[in-house]
Structure formats: C-alpha cells, structure tokens
C-alpha cells in the first residue's frame, strides 16, 4: 500500500549570482514515499505554478544516476542522507512524516550560484579541457586483449571512471577542494597504457587548472569519499599526488 508523508521544506532561493539569497519555507502534504526527491520538487513547482509564483530552479537531466547533473545539499549531506546515490535516486521513504528538510545549493567558491539551487559547475569542464583526455587518434575499436591489462588495473581504472562529475566531493569538503574529482579523472587514464604516456603532463595541467580556479588544498578529511554517489576512493588522491610529485621532480 502506498504510504504518504507531510513535510516542511526550507529551500534556498536566490534570484541571481549577485543577489542575496534566503531560505523560504514550504509545506507539502501527502507526498508518496515512493516518489523521488526530484519528483517531490516537481510537485512543489506545480503547486507554485498554480499559485502563480516563481518556480524553484534546480539542476537535473537523466534522473537515473548517470549524468551527474543533479545536485542539492540536503539536511547536511550532498545528495541527501542516503548512501551512494545521487539526488535523483534519493527517495522520499528516507524521510520521516513531519520532517523538516533543508535544501541548499553546493557551496564553494569554485561553484557560484546561478539561481536558487543551481550552481555553475563549469569549473569542472575547464579542468577536463586542461588535460583530461588522450591526445592521439586511437583509430577503430581494437581487438579485446590486444593490449594486455591486468584485472586489478582495469578494475581500478573502471572505479575511477565511474565519476560522473557531480561535484558532491567539493560540496562536502571543508576546504572546497576538488581533489577527488581530479584524482578520478587523472587515475582513469593513468592506470591504462593508452593514458599512461601523457600521465605527467595531464596531472600537472589539471592540477594547475584546479588551483587557478580557486579550489582549496586537500587535507585528507575523507568527507568527499563518504559523500561520493559513485564511491570513488581517496586512494585515487594518493595516486594523483604521486603522479603530480613524480612529474614535478622530473622537471
């Protein structure tokens, strides 16, 4: 049988990047616990439209946990209280009847607010553009096993590649550091023979861009790892440190 709950929402509203924001309180009744968090926000927006009020702006796209567009800092956690899921996969059954839910945008100097709950994560694109690629034509799809890669390495690279670039790591970090994201992007390539060749250049360029864009210095608190919806491990940060320091000492 369907269960429904009544909730109070405190949502950050901000008209634009320069405007001063504030929380607004909304009451929602009879929300199905089977609905997702974003569906709940859709219901709220429908209600606002019917009341001729301005809707709440938030990022989303695939709604199946793979694109990295959704964000939202919910009750003290990026992507909400559930483990290892994105906000779009978060369900209302994780909340209690009568609960007050605080919803905020990612907060970091690297991610300025565009409007309401939507932030500009273009900084991540700039970091990728700085070096998160392989700069040779790889031709057609090669035969499987033509290049031998150990299972361990392949698994590690795959784990790193699961990063969807959502920015929850930055949002969770008390230092506003983007190290987990950059570490994932450096690792997924550095672990494989095709990416290894440019590993030094890549680590240096991506870290330089990350620093330039105003992200903080990692102090290994591990908050990023515990909030990452894809469970990207901070062992990749150790690898990034290793790649970067090796590259700099070679210079």
């Amino acid at each position: 049988m369907e269960k429904t709950i009544h909730i109070t929402l405190k949502i950050w509203r901000q008209k634009g990047p320069q405007a001063k924001g504030a929380f607004e309180t909304y009451q929602l009744n009879n929300i199905s616990t089977d609905s997702s968090f974003l569906e709940m926000l859709d219901i709220l927006n429908e209600k606002l439209i019917s009341e001729k009020k301005e809707t709440i702006v938030f990022d989303h796209d695939c709604r199946e946990g793979i694109c990295g567009m959704c964000s939202l800092y919910i009750n003290g956690h990026p992507h909400g209280p559930d483990e290892d899921v994105t906000t779009c996969q978060l369900h209302m059954r994780k909340f209690k009847d009568g609960e007050t839910i605080i919803v905020e945008p990612w907060r970091s100097r690297g991610f300025p607010v565009i409007k309401d709950l939507m932030v500009d994560r273009g900084a991540f694109d700039k970091i990728i553009q700085a070096g998160g690629f392989i700069s040779v034509t790889t031709g057609g799809v090669p035969d499987a096993n033509a290049i031998p890669i150990s299972k361990e390495k392949a698994d590690e690279a795959m784990d790193a590649a699961s990063c969807i670039g959502c920015g929850a790591c930055v949002a969770a970090c008390k230092n506003g550091s983007a190290m987990l994201f950059v570490a994932a992007k450096v690792s997924q390539l550095a672990l494989l023979p095709q990416g290894k060749i440019e590993a030094s250049r890549r680590a240096k360029a991506m870290v330089a861009k990350m620093d330039e864009l105003g992200f903080g210095n990692c102090t290994n608190t591990g908050a990023c790892e515990s909030e990452c919806p894809k469970n990207v491990s901070i062992s990749h940060i150790a690898r990034l440190n290793r790649e970067f320091l090796k590259a700099k000492l070679k210079d």
Binding site: G76, P78, R107, R109, F215, G216
Partner: peptide, 14 residues
C-alpha cells in the same frame, strides 16, 4: 576562502 562566503545552514554531517 575556497569554501565560499555562505555556509551550510544544515551543517556538515559528512
């Protein structure tokens, strides 16, 4: 400074 000017009202529970 990197953390930005506005803090989280719901705290940091990570």
């Amino acid at each position: 400074r990197a953390r930005g000017e506005v803090g989280y009202a719901s705290g940091k529970k990570s």
